[in-house]
Amino acid sequence: MKKWVLPYLMLTPFLLLVLLFFVTPVVITTIMAFTNMDYSMEWNFIGLQNFEKIVSDPNFSQIVFNTFIYVGFTLLINVFFALLLALLSSYYIPFEQSGLFFRALWMLPRITPPVVYVLLWLWIFDASEYGLLNTLTSFFFSNDPIAWLIDHPMTAIILVNGMVGASFGMIIFSSAIQSIPRDLFKAAQVDGASEWSVFKDIILPSIKWPIMFVTVWQLLSLLTSYEYILLLTDGGPVFESEVWPLYSYHKAFKNLEFGYGSALSLILVIIAILLTGVLLKLFKFNRMIQSSRIE
């Protein structure tokens, strides 16, 4: 028996699963993007018409702009705020138990089902006098109720998604910080290094890999996920918080325009691949996989 037969045979079931659940949907979405499939679920090929419709869609430019703002700012929170939380809970809080408790608190939004989590935010942002923020502002400033989700929808969705995403980065960064040999910190202390120097010269180079992973991972998930926006503003008011994946969902599953929704998704997949490439280049991925993790 040749050496490679058994490993490949053992891998086959998993490769089949990958083929079935990862590759097949991409192929089907690609094919569907060239059809006008609707509620009747018929495969009528219409060439590039869906893509022409995307370009002539009156909401196209606003949705691209919204997506850019939403992904950019939420990613900043997901990475930088997460890093701050990780530093606080893994480096500056000396007691392991306290750090653990702090991290567990920040994990609450992530382990809460999205619907429950968003319901809480909906109550916070509610435009009537019964909303939490409005109750507080009227108590302290005697203000009229403010329509938070109408006046600041983008801020609201960035904040809500940022808080959930930050907990993911926090856990990854925390474990990376904790895996840094303590000797390095002790040596820096003996040498009289400042906190900034410890962060810049020890912590940051040691967690470059997790930073790259969190950035790429969160970028991909922000580009393709929409459930919190769907539940919080549903893209409104009008199209002010409508982002690309949500628009694709609305077209495919609300209007039952599966062909058009697939065309929107296909473009998004291409953009996601390109942006991932750009980020890997920025992080000098090729060099990273060759070097040791602690420089």
């Binding site: 509610d126 009537s128 329509a147 409104g236």
Partner: peptide, 15 residues
């Protein structure tokens, strides 16, 4: 209210 379309059903009923 200007914000009528961002209110919660329950709160509208309560009013």
């Amino acid at each position: 209210p200007e914000s009528m379309t961002s209110m919660e059903w329950k709160n509208v009923h309560q009013m």
